[in-house]
Design a protein around this nucleic acid. Structure first.
Lengths: 235, 235
DNA sequence: CGCATGTTTCGGTCGCGACCGAAACAAGCG
DNA sequence: CGCTTGTTTCGGTCGCGACCGAAACATGCG
């Protein structure tokens, strides 16, 4: 067997708390310097540097030197999806196994549960509610195995100004997308190319804004109106 | 943040070669005793027992005591999917990173690449070719974000005798399924509920048979005919 | 109710790897 | 061309965990 030892190696890379923290930080697709990552993981710069070298060796992250800075980011969307998936499974397991309650208190967690970015698309309560509403209106069909945008959904997207080339790329009457289990809501939200395009669109429309650091998103006043008008969701 | 340390814990569980080997062995959904798993991992029974306890703690596997034997199996399909996904990403990374050729030689690997079971559905060359053929005939639409069976595909499935209740469970004109990146072929094959039903059906039709141990599948003479007739695939 | 078989617990050894601080390296900038 | 700032390399410490064999535990069978 070829992949068994490789599998263990990859897993081991993610198995260290410091490395996991750094990977999660990079989960939104942005690039960071070794110093920043060291700070978020709470370790010395030298230690972080070692970890980053290992992650690079393993192919999980890529290096982009830029002038006097050296930026690290995830190697590909696939890596991001893998981490995402592991987080979802892990949180499900934790919920099923430990009877202790989750203890979400800090305002930072609050904001994170409300709206955040999940590698390249929207996640959190708002994303789940959008998916629910679209399902209810039959703009979206979703189950654990997959999801499609129906003709009605495509019309909605086009109306919103999401590049139709992206939305229509598969089939005439429907477009494929991917369900992604939300770790805070424990329900699926929309992921995949279309969800990424939608997320971009929300940003250019000025509905949401990424907070200076971290994965939390701020819902701007224009967004409050927009989400209510288009998706009938009031926050 | 709640899940970061949990994520690391889960990853660490898979990060040990012996544990990874045991998990991969269980990937076909069957249950094994501690002794069997110890043998496949090449470690002492006592060591394996310790590993299994940890995996159980972490919620990755479940225990089914039966008489004087104690059977272990994966805790859920989600866990299987997670491992599957990690293997796919890992093998892709390995292929992209190392320039060395894969070195698949032994007949065991040959059979494995040809046809095997991937948790609960068909994988390997034959699965990829079925997916290709169905796509070509417009019975299936697939991209990296998802997949659907079209009306034509549903007709085919019904014709094959796959329980229509399963095949039709979402929408009238299509049913959702999931693409799964095949680690040997590096192309997607069919996964999800429908693929699982199809796999079962092939077995009851006597087209394929699981080899006594391992994940490799044997294609029976009846299957050779069947696959040629239904999917126009000759082996 | 002993015996055989399979499984887990216990003690003890050993090596890997995470960590830090100090020093060596880059890469602008004044 | 030194100085500053960010990054990596180097040595050295320390603790966790993987491993085994022996012994204790179960469970069904003769």
């Amino acid at each position: 067997m070829v992949t068994v030892s490789n599998l263990a190696a990859t897993a081991q890379l993610m198995g260290d708390p410091a490395r996991a923290a750094m990977l999660v930080a990079m989960l939104d697709g942005r690039a960071f310097t070794a110093g920043e990552l060291a700070r978020t993981a709470g370790i010395a710069a030298s230690t972080a540097s070692g970890h980053l070298a290992k992650l690079r060796d393993g192919g999980l992250i890529a290096l982009y030197p830029q002038g006097r800075h050296r930026y690290y980011r995830l190697a590909s969307v696939d890596v991001g999806n893998m981490i995402e998936r592991m987080m979802a499974v892990t949180s499900e397991l934790a919920a099923a196994h430990t009877l202790s309650k989750p203890i979400f208190t800090g305002p930072r967690d609050q904001a994170l549960r409300r709206a955040r970015v999940c590698y390249d698309h929207l996640a959190g309560e708002i994303a789940v509610r959008i998916a629910d509403r679209m399902t209810q209106r039959e703009e979206l069909v979703m189950d654990r195995d997959g999801a499609v945008i129906t003709a009605a959904g495509l019309a909605l997207l086009e109306n919103l100004g999401v590049p139709p080339g992206i939305a229509r790329e598969n089939g005439n009457a429907h477009a494929l997308c991917r369900p992604c289990l939300d770790w805070s809501e424990r329900k699926p939200h929309l992921a995949g190319t279309i969800a990424a395009a939608l997320y971009q669109r929300f940003q250019t429309l000025g509905w949401i804004k990424r907070k200076p650091q971290g994965r939390a998103l701020e819902i701007l006043p224009k967004g409050r109106l927009g989400f209510e008008r288009v998706f009938d969701i009031r926050l």
